[in-house]
Nucleic acid binder design. Structure first.
Length: 223
DNA sequence: CTAGTGATTCCCT
DNA sequence: GGGAATCACTAGC
């Protein structure tokens, strides 16, 4: 069970401030997903900040597009993108409105509904692997582009919400380079996590992919 | 444990 | 045309 004071919604003002302040403050908070099968509650253990159009690592770096339009809207809403041809990732838009800042939710500990999360994450060997990584987190919670733009500060009963939970204790906060961000965008230590948590995803330096060897498959998928 | 690579599709250049 | 805020699996140590 979750204590009553932890179930307070996060006010929108929480996200209407600089993203580098909001990101570490998000650790330890609760993300609640309501599904037909039941409820999943995730305690956030790892996030990354993306600081608007000036940030080379951000999807907003090259300006507004149909895909990233939600980032330019009001704070406290979900920005969900599709990547690598297979995966979804979930962000929270941060203010001030128009700056196109956001926080990528990278990992969390399932504190309620692990059996439901496991339906979508059958390859997880342990419960702490259910949401260990941004695409795993979105998969475990059944989050896709249909939830793009969802208000995370909405009323009880909404499909996806953020509750106050218990902020991570200051001495356990850590930060370091962002994962998977190439070039100059990778230098900023804007990945934040809670020390000692098993659900925190391992750091992987960005590795540029060479086109693999000889034959490149072109159009048709073999017979 | 680490390093390497295929999967798969959308979106912007 | 080709990269992408990743994952799962394999080989090798």
């Amino acid at each position: 069970m979750i204590a009553a004071h932890d179930r307070t919604p996060l006010p929108r003002s929480f996200f209407d401030r600089p993203v580098l302040e909001a990101a570490p403050a998000l650790l330890g908070r609760l993300l609640v997903r309501e599904l037909p099968e039941g409820r999943i509650v995730l305690r956030l253990t790892e996030v990354e900040a993306y600081a608007g159009e000036a940030d080379p690592g951000s999807h907003a770096y090259r300006g507004r597009t149909a895909r990233n339009a939600v980032m330019y809207g009001p704070p406290g809403h979900a920005y969900v993108y599709f990547t690598y041809g297979m995966w979804h990732c979930l962000n929270v838009v941060c203010g001030p409105e128009g700056l196109a800042s956001g926080i990528l939710l990278r990992a969390g500990e399932v504190v309620e509904g692990a059996d439901i999360a496991r339906l979508r994450r059958p390859t997880a060997r342990r419960d702490h692997e259910l949401a260990k990584g941004p695409a795993r987190l979105a998969t475990a919670l059944g989050v896709d582009r249909a939830l793009d733009g969802t208000d995370l500060c909405g009323p009880e009963g909404e499909p996806l919400r953020l509750l106050a939970g218990t902020p991570a204790p200051e001495p356990l906060l850590r930060n370091g380079p962002r994962t998977g961000v190439s070039g100059e965008g990778g230098v900023h230590p804007w990945r934040y996590w809670i020390d000692g948590e098993q659900s925190v995803s391992p750091y992987r330096a960005h590795t540029p992919r060479r086109r693999t060897g000889a034959v490149r498959r072109t159009t048709t998928k073999g017979s």
